[in-house]
């Protein structure tokens, strides 16, 4: 069984006028929109620019807008867009490199500013014993180290595209960056490190710039809840100010 779909893709290059191109492709039933984009590239236009790597919502590279909504096309089933055309456009609030490819450099520089480490000790979500790994070096050692896992955030930039503040202030640190600060804050007890992180968030382009539209949390494909992190950071910053004021 297979599905026929028409993709309407926004094409642009620095040296070209923007335009929409349509591609008719046939994909297997289980295909996601990313597979359809790849078919368009493979069989119709090898100059179509799009980002992709893992095809399972882990690398975060493929984010685009599908029919106006920010999505990871690698986990957006074609059959959910029954019949009609599927309109595909690049993310908003990023400079466009070409077609569906946007420049993620400023975004990653923000992510780096908080030294956000993409692994973390596992929360015991499997309900099993979160005991230890051997680090591969000493299988005889007593289990002491908790399991680790990658953070939920795949750094896809979807929340920045969905964020109304971001389109008003390009210097805004952005939902993902602020959520990363919160994650790092939760991982450390070091007072200096915490101070540094809160200082980074406590900025006119930081947590105070957010208008609480909650679009980021709504759009995030990975249940990172950036808006909640921003609110929590505000609380922590206020608490710290309070302490400082009264020299507690």
């Amino acid at each position: 069984m297979s599905l026929q779909v028409t993709l309407k893709i926004l094409r642009s290059r620095p040296h070209q006028e923007q335009r929409y191109d349509t591609f008719d492709v046939t994909v297997p039933d289980a295909a996601n929109v990313l597979d359809a984009i790849e078919q368009a590239w493979a069989h119709h236009d090898r100059d179509l620019m799009f980002r992709h790597a893992c095809h399972h919502a882990s690398c975060g590279t493929c984010a685009v807008r599908i029919n106006g909504r920010e999505k990871l096309p690698c986990i957006a089933p074609v059959k959910d867009y029954d019949g009609g055309e599927i309109k595909i456009e690049p993310l908003r609030n990023f400079p466009i490199v070409g077609d569906l490819v946007v420049d993620v450099a400023p975004f990653f520089q923000n992510q780096e500013a908080s030294d956000f480490i993409i692994t973390r000790p596992t929360e015991n979500e499997l309900d099993g014993k979160a005991i230890a790994h051997t680090q591969g070096l000493d299988p005889e050692s007593a289990p002491t180290v908790p399991f680790n896992r990658f953070e939920n955030c795949v750094e896809c930039g979807i929340c920045l595209s969905a964020c109304p503040t971001m389109s008003a202030d390009y210097k805004f640190f952005g939902p993902a960056g602020l959520a990363a600060i919160k994650r790092q804050l939760d991982k450390t007890t070091d007072a200096n490190e915490r101070e540094k992180l809160l200082h980074l968030a406590d900025d006119e382009h930081g947590v105070w710039r957010c208008h609480s539209a909650w679009e980021c949390t709504e759009a995030c494909p990975q249940s990172v809840f950036p808006a909640e992190s921003i609110m929590a950071l505000r609380k922590e910053i206020n608490a710290q100010r309070f302490k400082k004021f009264f020299r507690l």
Binding site: M49, F50, R51, H52, A53, C54, H55, S58, C59, T61, V101
Partner: peptide, 14 residues
Amino acid sequence: RGEIASGTTGRNHC
């Protein structure tokens, strides 16, 4: 020609 790891590597079993 494309994104980093857009060939076999990106889509492997990790």
